[in-house]
Design a protein around this nucleic acid. Structure first.
Lengths: 252, 252
DNA sequence: CGCGGAATTGATGTGCATCAACTCGGGTGG
DNA sequence: CCACCCGAGTTGATGCACATCAATTCCGCG
């Protein structure tokens, strides 16, 4: 038991470096000693259980967080009581960026399953980025990437039909998993149908119906949270609005 | 005539400083000599006429742009031929941020009217931010602010009804104008109804109908592009989903 | 003055939300 | 270990908000 614990702590250390590496360093190529310095300011936090919240909307912003294992969602409360799911976050992804501006977290993060995250105190990160140009560039890129993803979502919510949205969602998820070395066609969705619907601006029932329709059409195999994508090409066609059931393109 | 030209060039110089000041420096308080250095890398560009495009989707990313006068829209093409308006940009606002990540502009900017903008070569800006911590912080804040605005829009597109969207749009516009020292209740919309509808995920006809309905209800006065907001409180109530015509809150 | 795109207004259709009933699965306690 | 229970998910029936289609009107511009 204690033997296992030692192993697991060590593996977390490694995972922590790896994940920092993958999201902050890898794409730009950071010098090893700089990786060391970055690693020096990262704090390990205790593992999260389903529903645990590393930060909440309105809380003072102090740190960014990197997902190490598991998955989280972020959401914001609307003034009328309900909430909008803003994103689902997989290992290697950075969350909390929207808190930098006002110094207050603009959304809440919640673990969808047992997960591990790293905390990066933002003040220290800023000092470091001023010293390491490539790290600064990487930070700009990450923030910009987040903007790009959000504008993609604007397009989805503003222009796409229900089935286009779900197809786009499945493909996005698939690609992000694939980038982390996991299967692009066989995975588990850690979030509920309700959360998917909320994220996509659809009712739960619509999401459910679409899953069955996609399955009937042989595009996917659905078994509760276990998803297998059977026809990526057809899903892409649907996501891009070239699916079967469009009479003609809506021009709003 | 030549006298006028001299005056106008001088006033552009001043406007250029002012606008840089307002969007990049003012909120953080930058030392005067640093403002000078920032000003040193900013390039004036020739004035834009309606439809001119400072940058286009797919083009190599080199610079950010600050709106000095007038207004622009940004939009992205969807794979099926239509386009999604991503935002409208007023004096003092920074555009092009979404190009940093991939080094390629992710959207196209287009002037809605005769406008003036400044170009900020991003490479030089990066060098400068590494030297001036408060400027670096300001850049992080600006990028984060953009993310925050996008997530606000996600909420609008994902959860709100047509009238909530238009009310939210008018209020957002009003507040942004007010922050630049203009009237919050009396202004001109430089974009067409079609562009508003596209931005809000609505058909032109719906936008038009809502304008007349709001006018009939005494909330606004509409005269083509000239808008006067008559009841900010009621508009806010509508934008927040507490408007009159909701039977009960939808819980998707 | 007359043309053409933008905006408005009305009539009709439909995609998806909503309401409702039922099934499934997994966790709990007896 | 099984019966129960409760939330998650599915499926069907209905309604409505908004898109779409169509017909004017309005305004800017040549």
């Amino acid at each position: 038991m204690s033997h296992q614990t030692v192993i697991s702590i060590e593996s977390i250390r490694i995972a922590c470096r790896n994940c920092t590496l993958s999201s902050l360093c890898l794409p730009m190529g950071l010098a090893p000693e700089d990786v060391e310095r970055l690693d020096g300011i990262i704090r390990r936090t205790r593992p999260l259980r389903r529903g645990d919240r590393p930060f909440q909307e309105g809380e003072r912003f102090r740190s960014l967080f990197v997902v190490k294992t598991g998955s989280l969602k972020t959401f914001a409360a609307t003034r009328d009581g309900s909430e909008q799911v803003l994103g689902f976050h997989l290992p290697g992804e950075l969350i909390g960026l929207d808190g930098i501006d006002k110094g207050v977290h603009a959304c809440t993060a919640s673990a969808l399953e047992t997960s591990a995250i790293c905390e990066i105190p933002f003040g220290q990160l800023e000092e470091l980025t001023a010293l390491i140009p490539s790290l600064q560039h990487q930070m700009y890129r990450l923030l910009s990437k987040e903007i790009g993803h959000d504008t993609d979502m604007l397009l989805v919510l503003g222009k796409k039909t229900a089935e286009e949205r779900l197809a786009a969602f499945l493909l996005d998820f698939s690609q992000r998993l694939h980038r982390r070395g996991l299967s692009a066609t066989d995975f588990y969705l850690s979030m509920s149908r309700h959360e998917i619907g909320n994220y996509l601006g659809l009712a739960v029932e619509t999401v459910s119906r679409l899953f069955t329709r996609f399955q009937d059409d042989g595009l996917v195999h659905v078994e509760r949270k276990h998803i297998r994508l059977l026809d990526l090409g057809a899903l892409e066609a649907i996501a891009n609005g070239q699916g079967p059931c469009r009479h003609q393109q809506q021009q709003r």
